[in-house]
């Protein structure tokens, strides 16, 4: 146990011996610490009794939320960070913007960006395409085209809410593929959130947890991924919404790495419905799971097994 090594460390022994008895003021004790440092007594320290990189390397990882950033150099940086953190696979789609293009050409261009990254990193990157549900003919064509290119899922943005009727035929198609539908969601103050106090210029078409619940109830055989509970959402709000809806999964992606986020997600949704995700924030993505108090077995599931189980359903599982 890492802590126990501290208890017998040279530094602890020295400090216990050095600091004067009870009743001595804090300032005096700090002065004593300074003397200790001056004499090199701190040099033993507890470090490296905990080896964070060893623990990082001990878990296989699938990043359930990676971004197909625009330039090869930018994506190379992502791969480099993924290498450092032992992330085996990156589930990659075009990152969401406040508003997304909706024409056939724009949608194809998004998906071609992903296709090009798949070619550049075969086996390392798994692709998700997007569609505009309001253009159902093109959407169904893109589903065919992109699955033929080897993409393994879909990410919907903010053209319409996920429970809009225009999305129904797309979901039905995906049910037949046994693939997960990844959707950019929000739950925060402001447009797209649970109180309309601030207009932060979000597209009103963005989906909120209640929209996910409605569509997940309508299609209980479909799988939905609520994107990035660490991406600015009120993760307590979102997780509480999804507690009783077994076909909604969440990923832990996003730059927000609040200390109890992962524990709360696993506690609320169970250990099967939480995926590791980064959304470009690689340090936070890994750090928030490693530092959580879920069990080692649960960390293994969140980092890798849970998403792999989803991939297996469509015949895309990783050995």
């Amino acid at each position: 146990m890492p802590g126990s090594s501290y208890l017998i460390s040279r530094r602890e022994f020295a400090m216990q011996s050095m600091v004067t008895a009870a009743g001595v003021g804090l300032a005096t004790q700090l002065k004593a610490e300074s003397v200790g440092i001056k004499n090199g007594i701190f040099s033993g320290g507890v470090y490296p009794s905990y080896n964070i990189m060893q623990e990082v390397r001990s878990y296989r990882k699938i990043d359930a939320y990676a971004n197909a950033v625009q330039t090869p150099a930018q994506f190379e940086t992502q791969i480099r960070l993924a290498d450092l953190l032992n992330i085996e696979k990156l589930i990659t789609a075009v990152p969401v913007a406040k508003t997304m293009g909706s024409s056939r050409e724009e949608i194809r261009a998004y998906n071609d960006t992903v296709a090009n990254i798949l070619k550049a990193y075969p086996g390392r990157v798994l692709g998700q395409f997007t569609v505009n549900p309001l253009d159902s003919k093109t959407a169904l064509e893109e589903i065919r085209r992109c699955t033929d290119l080897g993409m393994i899922g879909m990410k919907l943005f903010n053209h319409v809410k996920v429970n809009h009727p225009s999305v129904y035929p797309i979901i039905e198609k995906f049910i037949s593929y046994n693939m997960i539908i990844h959707i950019h969601g929000e739950s925060q103050l402001g447009v797209g959130g649970y109180r309309m106090k601030y207009d932060v210029k979000n597209n009103p078409g963005i989906s909120v947890p209640e929209d996910f619940i409605e569509i997940a109830k309508r299609y209980p055989e479909a799988m939905f991924q609520y994107a990035h509970i660490g991406g600015g959402s009120d993760w307590e709000y979102a997780c509480k919404c999804f507690t009783n809806q077994p076909n909604i999964y969440v990923d832990t992606g996003g730059s927000n790495n609040e200390a109890y986020l992962v524990d709360f997600a696993v506690q609320s949704l169970g250990e099967d419905r939480v995926f590791f995700g980064c959304d470009g924030s690689f340090y936070q993505g890994v750090g928030k799971i490693l530092s959580s108090d879920i069990t080692q077995h649960q960390k293994k599931k969140v980092f890798f097994d849970n998403y792999n189980e989803v991939l297996r359903k469509s015949g895309n599982g990783i050995n």
């Binding site: 964070i52 990189m53 990082v56 450092l84 953190l85 790495n257 609040e258 200390a259 986020l261 992962v262 340090y283 936070q284 890994v286 750090g287 928030k288 490693l290 530092s291 959580s292």
Partner: peptide, 14 residues
């Protein structure tokens, strides 16, 4: 205790 305990360390050790 607001943010997780390891991300700051990971930025250095990685």
């Amino acid at each position: 205790p607001i943010l997780d305990y390891l991300t700051g360390q990971l930025r250095i050790e990685s």
